[in-house]
């Protein structure tokens, strides 16, 4: 793996650090040598009042400044249960976002402070309801490949077969306006789900569609174990 971006351009990391601390002043940046972490109380504050807080550890992605960071809740308030908390049992990672949804909505990605004050803040606010035994206010994606499948279903407003057709198009990189729309209407893409298909092809990394298709295929072959991870 190549050198993490923050080793090559430490000045950019310093800018991120300042912006993160402005957004979440109780966090502290720790450079362990192997990783760069922001650790400490994450405040759910508004209108001058802290409504809740969680102790978190946010690992900066070494791949890119706008890649999805790995987040853990470190005080043990959130049980390490996939259901209903969306926490990975082995390492305590919070499953904050669906990667496909992330890139679809933020094609240029989010800087760390924006990720924290956007998706992560919403995620932690949602956890406060789940800790009270209530459902997630923002609803949930199904786990693993089913989540991706549901996402493609949603953007097309169609069924699983349509979602798989779209993933196949994305995986091959063969999006053309005159091809038949993956939704199954019989119309060509240009006259049907032009926006959704165009956005998906422009924004979602091809590997994500390939990975989901592979997982679905493996499951169909009966080769997949229930705890096999599908990492972004």
């Amino acid at each position: 793996m190549s050198e993490p971006w923050y080793r090559m351009r430490p000045a950019l990391l310093e800018v991120d650090r300042q912006q993160v601390l402005q957004a979440q002043p109780k966090l502290e940046m720790i450079d362990t040598g192997d990783a760069v972490l922001f650790r400490g109380p994450f405040l759910l504050e508004e209108g001058g009042k802290v409504h809740e807080q969680f102790d978190v550890e946010v690992a900066v992605s070494p791949r890119s400044q706008v890649d999805i960071p790995v987040v853990r809740e470190v005080a043990g308030r959130i049980p390490r249960q996939l259901d209903p908390h969306h926490v990975i049992k082995d390492d305590g990672t919070l499953c904050v976002v669906l990667p496909e949804a992330y890139w679809y909505h933020y094609p240029e990605g989010l800087r760390l402070d924006a990720f924290m004050m956007g998706p992560l803040r919403s995620h932690l606010a949602g956890q406060t309801f789940v800790l009270q035994g209530l459902p997630w206010p923002q609803k949930e994606w199904p786990h693993a490949a089913d989540g991706s499948l549901a996402f493609y279903r949603e953007i097309l407003g169609a069924d699983d077969r349509a979602a798989v057709r779209l993933m196949l198009m994305l995986a091959k990189g063969s999006i053309k306006g005159h091809r038949e729309c993956p939704c199954g209407s019989g119309a060509i893409v240009r006259n049907c789900h032009r926006d959704a298909v165009w956005k998906a092809s422009e924004r979602i990394p091809r590997e994500l569609a390939q990975r989901t298709l592979y997982q679905l295929w493996k499951r169909r072959q009966g080769q997949m174990t229930p705890q096999e991870p599908i990492r972004a």
Binding site: K49, C95, V97, L98, A101, S122, K139, W141, E228
Partner: peptide, 23 residues
């Protein structure tokens, strides 16, 4: 109320729905 504020915050991000990379 705090719960109303937290509910609003939880819905604020368009990608706030949690996922899970395990089955």
């Amino acid at each position: 109320s705090s719960n109303e504020v937290l509910r609003r915050i939880s819905l604020a991000s368009p990608i706030s729905r949690p996922w899970g990379y395990h089955e």
